[in-house]
Each structure stands twice: as C-alpha cells, then as structure tokens.
C-alpha cells in the first residue's frame, strides 16, 4: 500500500515537472559550464571537509559520509 502511494507521488511529481523545461534547441545557456551543478567540485570537496570537521551537520548536496577523524 505504501509503495502505491510512493508510485502515485512520483507520477504526480513527474506530471507537474512535465510542464516545465525547455526544448532541446533551447539549452545554450544551460549548457554553459557555469550552469553545471558541480562545476566547482574541488571547492565543494574542500568546503565539505571543513564544515564536516567544524559543525554537527554534513551532507545534503551529497552523502553525509564519514572518512575523517576530525568529527
């Protein structure tokens, strides 16, 4: 039963999303490197490590992980 509700929600979300977006020939701006979601992967990795070691929360954008004795 629970899975049926999940399926319904996913279908509804996708239906709603289908009204958004652009045609393939309208992607010139979205295709710019600066519009990639992880354009600055190196910066993000440094930041994740710093904030993981100094704050109680981590992750969100990616996995919250472990891998360091700093926290």
């Amino acid at each position: 039963m629970r899975y049926r509700w999940v399926a319904v929600l996913v279908v509804l979300a996708l239906s709603g999303c289908s009204n958004l977006g652009v045609k393939p020939w309208e992607r010139n701006i979205l295709a710019k490197p600066s519009m990639m979601l992880e354009e600055n992967a190196m910066d993000s990795a440094f930041d994740d490590h710093i904030y993981f070691s100094k704050e109680a929360s981590s992750g969100g954008r990616g996995f919250s992980g472990g891998g360091c004795g700093c926290n």
Binding site: P24, R27, L30, A31, P33, M35, M36, L37, E38, E39, A41, S44, R61, G62, F63
Partner: peptide
Amino acid sequence: VFDLIALASCSLIGVTGAASVSS
C-alpha cells in the same frame, strides 16, 4: 571537452546531465 569535464565532475547524485549529455 569542457562540457564533458563539467559532466564528469558532477556529484554522485542529482546531476542534471541533461544539458550536456548531447555533448
């Protein structure tokens, strides 16, 4: 190449990919 590299740098999840897959 830059588009591909940006794609390659994408995080494990939630990447759009859409804008650059054609490239």
